[in-house]
């Protein structure tokens, strides 16, 4: 029998993988993809908790929906900034963005 724990464990592992990607990738596009994985891991956790524990409002599932919406918005803005960086520096490697100092 599959329990809530299984889903949450899967989501945790997925999250760890995404985190690993965010930290190690040296390409901004790849970093954004890793961030997508992070967001999906969180959405999965929300949806599964809702299915198991909240049979009335499904608040977690609604959360998952909103996470998808916000992820889409984040990605479009992220890619727009990435295009700017590319035009500015001619590359999308993370080390071109090293002037983020106040």
């Amino acid at each position: 029998m599959i329990t809530l724990g299984h889903f949450l464990a899967l989501s945790a592992v997925l999250f760890a993988i995404g985190l690993f990607g965010v930290l190690t990738r040296r390409n901004l596009i790849a970093v954004l993809m890793s961030v997508e994985i992070l967001l999906n891991a969180a959405a999965l956790a929300f949806a599964s908790v809702a299915a198991y524990k909240d049979p009335v409002f499904f608040a977690g599932q609604l959360f998952a929906l909103f996470i998808i919406v916000v992820a889409a918005a984040e990605l479009s803005i992220g890619f727009a900034i990435l295009l700017l960086v590319f035009r500015h520096a001619g590359s999308v490697a993370t080390d071109v963005v090293e002037e983020m100092r106040g």
Binding site: L19, V22, L23, V31, E98, E99, M100, R101
Partner: peptide, 14 residues
Amino acid sequence: LQSGRFATYALYLV
């Protein structure tokens, strides 16, 4: 701590 590098900031976040 303020290196200006993207990766460093991501690390602090994590």
